[in-house]
Design a binder for these strands. Structure first.
Length: 400
RNA sequence: GGGGAGAUUCCAGAGUGGCCAAAUGGGGCAGACUGUAAAUCUGUUGGCUUAUGCCUUCGAUGGUUCAAAUCCAUCUCUCCCCA
């Protein structure tokens, strides 16, 4: 095992808060493998980079010789974590949840070391918890205590709905920690309340409380909101390499360093020197390219990352040569001529004819490199093959 | 159990009988400028092969009216106050 200082240096990278650092050091000093917990809500099947932040942290713990327990919250997912949510969330069926888990784990294993990993469903214990047991558990808490959770407090004060089941969420998550005797729980900063509830419950059960380690919430492509599927500002692990690369390139400069720290293994010293360089006038674009490459490589492999880079440079680089051939579409229409509306809908550039019309009339469409702003134009099958570009990002070629 | 307030387009939020497909802001999309960055500016933002046209939409259903997001009835949901 590495020395305490070495461990701390690795562990603390990208972590914004530790509750408490003294407790952490105390545990590490014992020089035996710790149990690190991460709870997963299998509410969405696909993982995006935002999810990888705590997963990366887990991996670091694994590499240091600690044991990771991934808790699949099949029960908690039936409620849905209310943290940061301004309204109630739809409840998922149990089947849907189990279905999500499969897809989820496939992706999570790209980050975690399967050999040092336990995966447990919290249904394992919640299935057995009787109503009497539940009452006993719940009786440890008061309403005032729950209202310390900012999300609850805000909802309560603003008059938004606040379900009793939602208030049970942190309690359940805390109970998970008791059941697996967690030493450390990893989570985003939005997990603070839930993790601290775990500490409380462990203490109540006569256990040594877990340490909470909080990773920042990763901003999405817009640079403002947290990365999430519902906001559409995410980079998915299953995104095509060219998309992954391109999406990274489109993040605001301001969050680039952030991404480096949280999403790559690039040495902190190097990251800081890049930060310096940018301050002194270097073009952030070049560092962003490296970032895009690192990230794509991590999840898609080196070959794919190279492809993503090439694609990007062709499409948006200095001597722009849009790689129309990279996106090939077949003439799958039942007829020999189609309207522009049909074309744009077929390639997902427009949601409706009206939408398509707007785009065309505003000069967003190019066919065979020629701007086409006549919405009434008809495209004949005999014109194949032809290239098109709709807006900045959607382009391709139609072939027979 | 009693009393009160409210539900509007992706979101926030105006609108209280016709001028309402519905102000304004945000977000989205397109264009200019660029580094697929930021900032800024312009246009656009329910659907329909653009139409001084039609259709769908202001929680749901039914009604009044030449005309309803707006009035009435019932219902559903939410919040507040009292118990």
């Amino acid at each position: 095992m590495k020395s305490l200082d070495e461990q701390l240096k690795i562990i603390k990278r990208g972590v914004v808060d530790i509750v408490t650092e003294e407790d952490l050091i105390k545990k590490l000093k014992r020089d035996r493998p710790l149990t690190i917990k991460l709870g997963i809500d299998p509410t969405a099947a696909d993982i995006h980079l935002g999810h990888t932040v705590p997963l990366n942290k887990l991996r670091q713990f694994q590499d240091l010789g600690h044991k990771v327990v991934l808790i699949i919250g099949d029960y908690t997912a039936m409620i849905g974590d209310p943290s940061g949510k301004s309204s109630e969330r739809p409840q998922l069926t149990r089947e849907k949840i189990l279905e999500n888990v499969t897809t989820y784990s496939e992706q999570a294993y790209r980050i975690l070391d399967k050999n040092r990993l336990d995966v447990v469903y919290n249904g394992t214990w919640f299935d057995k918890l009787s109503f009497a047991g539940t009452l006993k558990l719940v009786s440890k808490f008061t309403l005032a205590q729950m209202l310390e959770h900012d999300t609850f407090d805000k909802r309560f004060k603003s008059g938004a709905p606040l379900g009793l089941n939602e208030m049970l969420y942190p309690v359940m998550q805390g109970y998970d920690s008791v059941m697996i005797n967690a030493d450390i729980e990893i989570g985003g900063t939005d997990q603070r309340f839930n993790v601290i509830t775990g500490r409380f419950l462990q203490r109540e059960s006569g256990m040594e409380p877990q340490v909470g380690m909080f990773t920042p919430i990763l901003p999405g492509l817009d640079g403002k909101n947290k990365m999430s599927k519902s906001l559409g500002n995410y980079i998915g692990l299953n995104d095509k390499p060219e998309d992954m690369f391109g999406k990274v390139m489109s993040i605001p400069d301001g969050i680039m360093i952030n991404y480096y720290e949280l999403l790559t293994d690039v040495d902190m010293a190097e990251i800081h020197s890049m930060e310096e360089a940018v301050k002194n006038g270097a073009n952030p674009r070049d560092f962003k390219k490296k970032l895009a490459f690192e990230i794509t490589k991590k999840y898609r492999g080196e070959q794919e990352a190279k492809y993503g880079r090439e694609y990007f440079e062709k499409a948006f680089g200095a001597d722009k040569k849009i790689p129309y051939e990279a996106n090939v579409f077949k003439w799958n229409f039942e007829k020999d001529e189609i309207t522009i509306g049909e074309l744009l809908k077929a390639v997902n550039a427009a949601a409706s004819n009206s939408d398509a019309r707007r785009m065309v009339e505003q000069g967003g469409l190019t066919i065979n490199e020629i701007k086409t702003d006549d919405f009434k134009r008809v495209i004949k099958k005999s014109e194949l093959p032809f290239t098109f570009k709709a807006g900045k990002k959607i382009f391709g070629t139609f072939q027979k």
